[in-house]
Design a protein around this nucleic acid. Structure first.
Lengths: 243, 243
DNA sequence: CGTCCGGTTGAATGACGTCAAACCAAGTGG
DNA sequence: CCACTTGGTTTGACGTCATTCAACCGGACG
């Protein structure tokens, strides 16, 4: 009768706040003064860690792109994210004794290894660090929930649009171009992340390209109209876009 | 040909480790000695908090069942979980300044309010508490990733089977019957959580019932064969089950 | 040069969504 | 007591969109 019995959400945390990098406040310089950190290079295709290995350290991505995936006993597998520069990987495994996911480099990466016992010591010494770690965890949680929502409520074309929008924003946050970038991952990886098949991802990219919203050439993406892309990802506009 | 070049995951964290309650090590008794905690009753249908409200406290569920959901500006919404006794809610909002999801009671609940500043103080005083909180965060993260995998790789019948299996395990962990329980949430809530429509959930339940795996009567669920249910949820058995 | 891998595209199939009707239990009011 | 509503659930018929299966293309590489 009145102003809708259904609560209209006045406040919406996504996606703006989602697109900031996770460890906003993680100061690696201060951290390395506090503890010994190890710089490591990882070649494309190599694992940073594998599910089942004993949990020893967190890793801060200093350069490069990674793929995180989780698998089950019966052979099912799903990509759960694509960490990049400035993000902390390994946090999902804290407290479980061993790593629970696979993290593999998509290209040559430089990562900083933070042995977990030392992290704990440093946290005790620097309360701000503890807060930063907790916030990183919580933000990661919000990210996952945002993607759960995206995958649960959007169709294939919209999911791909949302994926591109997310990549663009993360590139911008790193100082790269948000309108022109190269996908580091295969169609199959994207499909797994978005709970689609790789043919469907290809088709969605073709639809967006046909609508003039993006230009695709193999893994090279050019975003012609970020605003339309956003409408595709967020709302009902896509019916028109993809027609 | 051989054992597949694809890495066969020798170690699998899910679902066994997933089914433990989140704050294994959160000792509320010790905590309440350390800080002032507030006991609150929440009637069924009432909100514990809403997205957008200022973040003030975490909540420990002492009794009852809740529903957590996230919404976007354009009206999309998704249930992201069903917290129950022994779980900590609100952690996803840490560091964001305001709550980022809605949490509503499905039945009459008793919850313990833990004002966040006091939690921080207590963490500083009790290092084990800090560890427990961090672990709770990480475990929640693993849970979300497990469900992402489930939703991304299973069909409708399998998702519903996995959902029932999860509920059964959580009931068992609380000392309730794992083979006979009452769903506190509607078909619509289940459907939203599993990224399906409520008719599809109903059909899936009917399939499982027709296969003799469960008995359904409105919200009352009886699990006739937990082993077959598990095979449905996990693997390829369902084609046979639901036929 | 042939092979392989990743990507693209088309056509057919099928699973889930949509729409609609009916049912059931619990209220509410006459 | 019955008529009527309301919210949740169930079932059927039909439509749609993503998957499946297949063919084909182009670049990388032995």
């Amino acid at each position: 009768m009145t102003a809708m019995t259904a609560t209209t959400p006045a406040f919406v945390p996504f996606p703006a706040s989602m697109l900031r990098l996770v460890p906003d406040s993680l100061d690696i310089a201060a951290l390395s003064a506090q503890m010994t950190v190890l710089r490591r290079r990882v070649r494309g295709g190599q694992h940073v860690y594998r599910a089942g290995q004993p949990f020893r350290a967190l890793f801060f991505v200093h350069a490069g792109f990674l793929r995180r995936s989780v698998a089950t006993a019966d052979g099912r597998e799903q990509v759960t994210g694509f960490p990049m520069r400035g993000e902390l990987v390994g946090v999902e495994s804290i407290g479980s004794g061993h790593y629970t996911v696979d993290v593999v480099a998509l290209d040559d990466c430089e990562i900083i290894e933070l042995p977990y016992p030392a992290v704990l010591d440093a946290c005790a010494a620097m309360p701000t660090l503890q807060g930063a770690l907790t916030q990183a965890l919580a933000q990661e949680l919000r990210r996952d929930q945002y993607w759960m929502l995206t995958l649960g409520t959007l169709n294939a074309d919209q999911r791909v649009a949302a994926f591109l929008q997310d990549l663009a924003a993360r590139h911008r946050a790193l100082g790269f171009s948000a309108s022109h970038f190269v996908l580091r991952m295969s169609r199959i990886d994207i499909a797994s992340f978005l709970a689609l098949k790789h043919e469907t991802v290809t088709r969605a990219l073709s639809h967006l390209a046909a609508a003039g919203i993006i230009a695709v050439e193999r893994r090279e993406i050019r975003i012609a109209c970020a605003e339309r892309l956003g409408r595709c990802a967020g709302g009902a506009e896509l019916a028109r876009c993809a027609a």
